[in-house]
């Protein structure tokens, strides 16, 4: 596209199907301890196929 560059991102809608294994890190456990954010956590589901 000429005027629009789309970054590669995980498709959240598709992750409805393959997500939810729960192996990922608990959000604030190891760094901030005072706020919540989940965006910096990598997915640890080795079977995630939607990407």
């Amino acid at each position: 596209m000429k005027r629009i560059n789309t970054l590669n991102t995980r498709d959240l809608a598709k992750s409805v199907k393959n997500g939810g294994c729960g192996e990922c890190q608990t959000s604030c456990q190891s760094a901030c301890k005072t706020s919540c954010g989940v965006a910096n956590q990598p997915c640890e589901n080795k079977n995630s196929k939607e990407q």
Binding site: N8, A13, A31, C32, A39, N40, S48
Partner: peptide
């Protein structure tokens, strides 16, 4: 910087994003 380390390709699934820190 912790808060700028976001993983766009392999970030959390929607379940994680909805349910929060746990």
């Amino acid at each position: 910087f912790y808060h700028y380390t976001i993983d766009l390709n392999n970030g959390p699934c929607i379940y994680k994003r909805i349910s929060g820190c746990g």
